[in-house]
């Protein structure tokens, strides 16, 4: 019962604001019933037959815990609609590096989602590392995102997504795009 309540409190947010989340999380395809979009744990996702992944009429995303390696996903990226990287605690930063590798190095074009302990002070880091969406349940984060108050800085000292090089500025500096 309490689990359902918790699920209801999670909201999905992206640069354009809050949005509906078509995905459900499930341990296996069977457990997902007839949901049209499912997120499976990495092991379950890797256990699927390649054909099922390709021919299924449902979207099958994959959830990766911080201690899990993204290597086995790399040659299948074009078949993955969504990768969710976990933040079991806000201070476990491994998923930032994975986001950077997936989006920056390997050109993953599906949805990259941050799930777990998403706090307002990490939102900009997540967006810049390459996350498209964040699953948010922290009340302060929800309130600030509702008010479009991202705790952003007017400039950044590193290249990152959603930013542009400043004309005549140092090569490592960026300003928010748009």
């Amino acid at each position: 019962m309490s689990e359902t309540t918790e699920q209801n409190e999670k909201q999905l947010w992206g640069r354009e604001g809050f949005r509906n989340d078509p995905y459900i999380e499930a341990e296996s395809l069977d457990a997902a019933g007839d949901a049209p979009a499912v997120i499976l744990p990495l092991a379950a996702w890797l256990g699927l037959d390649d054909d099922i992944r390709r021919t299924s009429n449902r979207r099958i995303g994959v959830m990766v815990a911080p201690g899990e390696d993204i290597e086995p996903l790399l040659d299948k990226l074009d078949t993955i609609p969504l990768i969710a990287l976990q933040f079991p605690a806000f201070n476990d930063g491994r998923s930032y590096s994975k986001a950077e590798l997936l989006k920056g190095r390997h050109g993953f074009s599906g949805e990259l989602r941050a799930v777990g302990d998403v706090l307002i002070d990490q939102v900009v880091f997540m967006l810049r590392a390459g996350f498209d969406t964040l699953q948010v349940s922290n009340p302060i984060a929800l309130e600030r995102l509702n008010a479009s108050d991202l705790h952003d800085t007017p400039g950044y000292y590193q290249p990152g997504r959603g930013s542009a090089q400043t004309a005549g500025g140092y090569s490592w500096r960026r300003t928010p795009a748009g």
Partner: peptide, 14 residues
Amino acid sequence: RQWSSLHPEFSFLP
């Protein structure tokens, strides 16, 4: 110093 300031990937190291 500049490059490491509020680095999005490296603000939550081990």
